[in-house]
Amino acid sequence: MFEDLFKVVKKRFNDSEDDYKPMFKCPRCQETSPLIRYEELHRVCPLCNYHGRLSAQERIQITVDKESFCELDSGMTSGNPIDFPDYEEKQKESAEKTGISEAVVTGTATIKGSPCVVGIMDSRYMMGSMGSVVGEKISRAFEYAAENNLPVVMFTASGGARMQEGIVSLMQMAKTSGAVKLHSDKGGLYITVMTDPTTGGVTASFASLGDIIIAEPKVLIGFAGRRVIENTIRQRLPEDFQLAEFMFEKGFVDMIVERRKMRSVLSHLLKLHGYDKKEV
């Protein structure tokens, strides 16, 4: 069901290898612009405002207060629950390539002084897919926030469930959603920031459960893969199908916020909910 979505995601992954050449080709408007310009804008297409993918490290750097980030569960790595062939090797490759140990980084931080728990998914690590570690780290982040009366800001980016973990990956949807509910029932604020791409099992679990759902411009948000749907209905889908603006129009996103304003919007929203400056 997700196969074609993965194809699209993968294709864009390959595109990102071009980042090391001096031009940037935008996956949305298909135009090229100088890479340096794209980088200066923190990976935003200067022509169509598509918000490209950031690494977890880059996202932390532009979002939270300097040196406020304190990582949780940094050493956690994955087992191989269904003994899937070559899964360990695949993980090792991804870790070496990205410099992170799994597809999500979680921690405590402050945003303009407001304390919070943050989670940042990184689509470079096995397409940001959710397996045991992503599920466990996100669940713990919400439990920690619930215990310490902290808000959660979650930047989502995922191709969906991690196929190599079979049914165990599906169960992470239940685990994370349960932890979100626990945090919510204690009155905690949860802000989702959907970034490129937020799809599959992540859309169908914690990503869609934010009290406030923000999306970056032109990012892909959906449950089913575009090609799968095209094969079902036997016609081409419009270009803007499943983009942030489409989901906003349909009522599943509260606001679309540009990257350069994100930190300030998050800070305001945290303060509006009474999370003012205090020690974490």
């Binding site: 239940a174 349960g178 169908a204 990503a207 449950f223 599943f252």
Partner: peptide, 12 residues
Amino acid sequence: RGMGEAIARNIA
């Protein structure tokens, strides 16, 4: 109509 949201909501 928000398939992702509908499934997520039920689970939670």
